[in-house]
Amino acid sequence: MAISIITKEDLQQFKAELLEAIEALLKRNTTEQKLWLRTSEVKKLLSISSGTLQNLRINGTLSYSKIGGTLYYNYKDIEKLMKGFKD
């Protein structure tokens, strides 16, 4: 059985590689977010009712696009709305 000695530099290299891998995973997860969400997805994401979502549409707080009878919401608009709630 061969014995390997791990140095401090080996551990630092491992740490750097591990951090790079974690950052890559986080970037991939955020880029995989859908750009357009349906009504049910928006209601679940914001934890709101259909009526509240309708009010957000009517008063212009949340823009949407209607394609073939289905409403779609831009995820970036939803992010802006959520940031507005926090402020």
Score class of each variant (00 low, 15 high):
1 M>D: 11
1 M>L: 13
2 A>Q: 15
2 A>I: 15
3 I>P: 01
6 I>T: 14
6 I>W: 08
7 T>Q: 06
7 T>I: 14
8 K>N: 15
10 D>M: 13
11 L>Q: 14
12 Q>N: 08
12 Q>H: 14
12 Q>D: 02
13 Q>L: 13
14 F>H: 11
14 F>T: 09
15 K>W: 05
17 E>M: 11
17 E>A: 10
18 L>Y: 02
18 L>S: 01
18 L>W: 04
19 L>G: 06
20 E>Y: 05
20 E>S: 09
20 E>G: 00
20 E>D: 01
21 A>S: 15
26 L>Q: 07
27 K>V: 02
28 R>G: 00
28 R>H: 02
28 R>Y: 10
29 N>I: 00
29 N>W: 01
29 N>H: 02
30 T>C: 05
31 T>G: 03
33 Q>D: 10
33 Q>I: 06
34 K>I: 10
36 W>N: 08
36 W>C: 04
42 V>S: 00
44 K>L: 08
46 L>G: 13
48 I>F: 10
48 I>S: 05
49 S>R: 05
50 S>T: 10
53 L>P: 00
53 L>H: 05
53 L>F: 00
55 N>C: 06
57 R>S: 01
57 R>V: 01
57 R>M: 03
58 I>M: 09
58 I>Q: 13
58 I>D: 12
59 N>F: 06
60 G>M: 10
60 G>C: 03
60 G>L: 02
62 L>M: 13
62 L>W: 08
63 S>I: 10
63 S>N: 14
64 Y>C: 09
64 Y>A: 10
65 S>A: 05
68 G>M: 14
68 G>I: 08
68 G>S: 14
69 G>S: 07
70 T>Y: 08
70 T>W: 12
70 T>S: 10
71 L>C: 06
72 Y>P: 11
72 Y>F: 07
73 Y>F: 15
73 Y>G: 15
73 Y>E: 13
74 N>R: 02
76 K>M: 08
76 K>Y: 04
78 I>Y: 12
78 I>C: 11
78 I>L: 07
80 K>P: 01
80 K>N: 02
80 K>H: 06
80 K>I: 03
81 L>C: 07
81 L>M: 11
81 L>F: 03
83 K>A: 07
84 G>A: 09
85 F>D: 05
85 F>S: 04
86 K>R: 08
86 K>S: 09
87 D>W: 11
